[in-house]
Design a protein around this nucleic acid. Structure first.
Lengths: 192, 192
DNA sequence: AAATCCAAGACGACCAGTCATATTGACGCT
DNA sequence: AGCGTCAATATGACTGGTCGTCTTGGATTT
């Protein structure tokens, strides 16, 4: 079976290449080269570069959802789960040599004027992520593990935005410092 | 004198256009059109698009330094000055219809693989900004206005990263919500 | 007249997407 | 089983358009 394999190769290479080099800076040929697939084959499997982008975002979001699984149904107190979640995320940066950052955040600025379909997929992924974190925070507030003076969804949105900012900084600096500072500040000052 | 005027028109139009549409998404022709200057004239005044980018960043950073002035030598308690600073910044978003975001943050992702000269200028501007904020926070800590359990420069870096993340979100959503949440969370939970 | 400055279009590189042709493989029929 | 059919896929040269940059002839100044 050639079809699923070729398509899968394109999707996988597309995810990696677009993540590392950004959407606009990556050509279709870059992707087909990375997938070791002739360029002409690309359009047998994807209607356009944008269409691949939408699927790449979907796959990235699905991977994120898997990573959020223990956040929802894992054991232990909610704040411990939340801390573990962000600590896991923070380990992805150094593992990739700080070359990638968060694909969702990267696409957000890369596509600010183009590709409404991809933008919508990105924002849907963010909304989903925010919802899960808000739920865990609400759980912690109800359990009396942290203060309730700010609404859970406000805190969740703030956390995600702050984390995205930290990831971008750490990507540029190629250093974990901003990620560590994020953990230190949020869990000492906010999530208590 | 035609030369300084043309150059100035290009710089000013370049700042606005690059800010709104991003570096890669903006062509030299877009800039010369916005400046109402013939395209051929561009290279009489700037060596390259990158060179204009460096000067645009420098001008943006200089505008930022002016805005930071009251932060350093203004009256009142440090935390009040800091809050006023961010509140002022947050008013720039809606004033521009949330179309721009922060030029430094936008360039950071836009140029992650290109233009080391511009990247260096961007990071220098960030470092400068961080330094000023860290100084104000240290002042507040020494005055006993806030806790000292985290170092001032860690907090300053966190604040900037978090603000950049909030600005990007607010730009996409075309809403002030993320900016308001930033103010609410940071000044209720961190800067106390 | 000499020197300097400016602008209009040309140039080459690049890129998303297309096309014509070649190849494959699943499937119905005998 | 053997064979013909046909739709899906493979392939890389090609197209149309855009972009950054440069060249060149003309305008302006001294």
């Amino acid at each position: 079976m050639a079809k699923p394999t070729t398509r899968e190769k394109l999707l996988s290479a597309g995810l990696e290449t677009l993540h590392k080099r950004g959407f606009n800076a990556t050509g279709v040929q870059d992707i087909t080269d990375a997938a070791k697939v002739p360029k002409g084959s690309f359009y047998n499997h994807f209607e356009s570069k944008d269409a691949l982008g939408v699927e790449v975002v979907a796959r990235y979001a699905a991977m994120g959802a898997v990573r959020r699984q223990p956040l929802v149904d894992g054991g232990g107190p909610p704040l411990v789960r939340l801390r573990a979640h962000f600590r896991n995320l923070n380990q992805l940066g150094p593992a990739a040599g700080f070359r990638r950052g968060c694909l969702l955040g990267n696409f957000r600025t890369d596509l600010s004027t183009h590709s409404p379909a991809i933008r919508a997929a990105v924002e849907a992924a963010f909304d989903d992520w925010t919802r899960v974190i808000a739920q865990v925070i609400a759980e912690a507030q109800e359990a009396g593990d942290m203060s309730r003076d700010l609404p859970a969804d406000t805190l969740a949105g703030f956390l995600l935005n702050a984390w995205e900012g930290a990831v971008m900084r750490s990507r540029v600096e190629k250093s974990q410092a901003a990620l560590d500072a994020f953990l230190a500040v949020t869990f000492n000052k906010i999530l208590t």
